[in-house]
Write a protein that binds this DNA or RNA. Structure first.
Lengths: 340, 340
DNA sequence: AGGGGTAAGTCATACGTATTACTGGGACGG
DNA sequence: CCGTCCCAGTAATACGTATGACTTACCCCT
């Protein structure tokens, strides 16, 4: 007789000749001392044979926990956040947790969430790249912040922006560059504020180095305009290296260079940040800092799970890695003031 | 006295002076004829005042439905699938459904799913760009396939690949091109098979046109090699236009062109497919076909929800749109056989 | 021999909801 | 004036699990 609907723990009990409670004890792993090894084995065997899987809804109802975590990101329409998701989901799955992603832009508070009742339907929140108070509607829900202000109350996992920027500046300074232009993101997010500060600090540490900054939205066209402003008329005082807040903006810098007739890296060096697919697709390939987005998601989920278990996870900083490609080269002699 | 834990339907009942069943009826919207308008209003008011939200787990348990859908994609680490997710999640949210994404590559069957018991924890599956039999472990679960073989049993939403390729070929033919090279993806997926067939058909419709094809993996470096093979020694018979299976491969074609000293679009035209961010970041900007990824997800979710309601949704084909940018131009005269 | 202790299970219950079967009472028809 | 019908709502129950409170039977010790 074919089992038409899914087997329950009671079916397993019947098959093993025990009570439902015993099944629950055994499968819950808390049988030592309560159930004899022989019985436990019989139960596990029966469960296996029937292909029993516990009902998630029933378990959630009983335990008051859904074993689901919500990931809040600005968008999934960017490989970076996709990688964060994958890293987080991998770790979550290992602990029997599911992950629901929620892209932020249209987000207008808990009532607007994909879940009508976020406080109930999820056990915790992993929030990337957004202000902490944006989550004020989720009182009672444990939160871990990613790539956000570590000064916040919640545990935080960030990239070592400082180290990354210093690596870039050191690399360029070693090539003889002294006049830097910063194609900066105007987005009001901690990570970009941090990048700006880190860059300023790093440049300050280079004797005789100068830094000019122009802000732009996080897209190619706007970044191109900012880069053009930085390059100005192309006089002898123009920057010899453009440091961009992320890889996409670098593409704008490339366009600006071409518009000015400058060849990369001969006449101008350009750097990015993040190392997304685009970086290696550009011509020449982009020197940038690789941020381990997957690890960010994984480490964040790890912290969140510890938080859910009542622990008190600390904040964490993940190092980036300078990837030197073809967009950086020695500072052109010709652009230095030759005489006077 | 502050309400410490979440209000239940029983709390609402108490506050409104009715029974729990009445609350459930009213909030379920099936009260007309069973409950007086005045009472219904009182219940709704009480629910509002207490900030009542139904418990998802309890409802799932009762109804045997989780109101959650699983989205299976090859990866989220690609903007295309991120957009699919966003479109699907938007539609799902409007119907009170949540979406759990599951990246495919590590996928090894239901037991490996983020949910230990997929058949129970989800109501349906939206699967993108993968073979139907890959889901054989999910018997009993309704499935809608995206960008996959429409001949499959499950309802399908695809792009009009045929129309897109024809638009590209017509555009190029109008510019005088006759010798085409196809930088083809070697991935065994319906969409790429379809693109290959569609391209062959479209070229065949152009009198005197020829088509050569080289296969490559879906990354920049491999696509570059394939493009180099297509360009050969650069003799008079070389293709004047390279049609790539997607935008990323186009980046490889760009590199091949530069390696051969060919300028785009003067000496060589290049086209892509998909219109991801990269397309507009390349220099010159890429002529490609924009595929509405978000709409794909939305339409797929729409079909799936109808399927879950017992409907019988048909398959659907979404049109792409040719986006002409700077990578295509008139066929160079110099490359045509001048004499003989 | 009687009492206490423990090993090995079972019983009963609660989680919060949706729904079916039921009830009290008023209106209405004959 | 009595039977019938319907309105407005309620009581009871089931979904499948986890767990604290019980129960039994056996063993050991004095």
């Amino acid at each position: 007789m074919p089992m038409t609907s899914r087997p329950t723990s009671r079916d397993v009990a019947k098959a093993a000749g025990v009570s439902q409670s015993t099944v629950s004890l055994v499968l819950g792993g808390k049988w030592p001392g309560r159930v004899s090894p022989a019985t436990a084995a019989a139960v596990q065997d029966a469960a296996e044979r029937l292909g029993y899987r516990p009902n998630r809804a029933a378990r959630s109802l009983r335990l008051g926990s859904t074993r689901t975590v919500m990931l809040v990101v600005p968008t999934l329409n960017a490989p970076f956040f996709g990688a964060v998701y994958e890293g987080a989901a991998r770790v979550a799955a290992q602990h029997g947790f599911g992950v629901v992603a929620y892209p932020w832009p249209e987000y207008a508070g808990p009532a607007d969430s994909p879940f009508a009742a976020p406080d109930e339907a999820i056990d915790g929140i992993l929030a990337s790249s957004l202000a902490e108070d944006a989550l004020s509607g989720f009182a009672r829900t444990p939160v871990v912040m990613l790539d956000s202000d570590p000064a916040a109350e919640a545990p935080t996992v960030v990239f070592d922006v400082q180290g990354g920027m210093r690596a870039i500046v050191d690399h360029l300074a070693g090539l003889g560059h002294r006049r830097f232009g910063h194609v900066a993101s105007s987005i009001d997010q901690w990570t970009f504020h941090a990048r700006g500060r880190a860059l300023a600090d790093a440049v300050e540490a280079v004797p005789g180095a100068t830094l000019v900054r122009e802000d732009a939205a996080l897209d190619v066209a706007d970044a191109k305009d900012a880069a053009l402003r930085l390059l100005g008329g192309g006089g002898p005082d123009r920057p010899t290296a453009l440091i961009c807040d992320d890889d996409v903006m670098s593409a704008g810098a490339y366009k600006a260079a071409r518009a000015r007739g400058l060849e990369i890296p001969r006449d101008l060096s350009v750097t990015g940040f993040d190392d997304v697919l685009l970086a290696a697709a550009l011509e020449p390939e982009l020197t940038t800092v690789r941020l381990p987005a997957g690890e960010l998601g994984a480490a964040g989920m790890d912290a969140l799970l510890r938080l859910l278990e009542g622990g008190r996870p600390g904040s964490l900083s993940l190092p980036g890695e300078l990837v030197v490609r073809g967009s950086t080269g020695p500072a052109a002699r010709g652009t230095a003031p030759i005489r006077g």
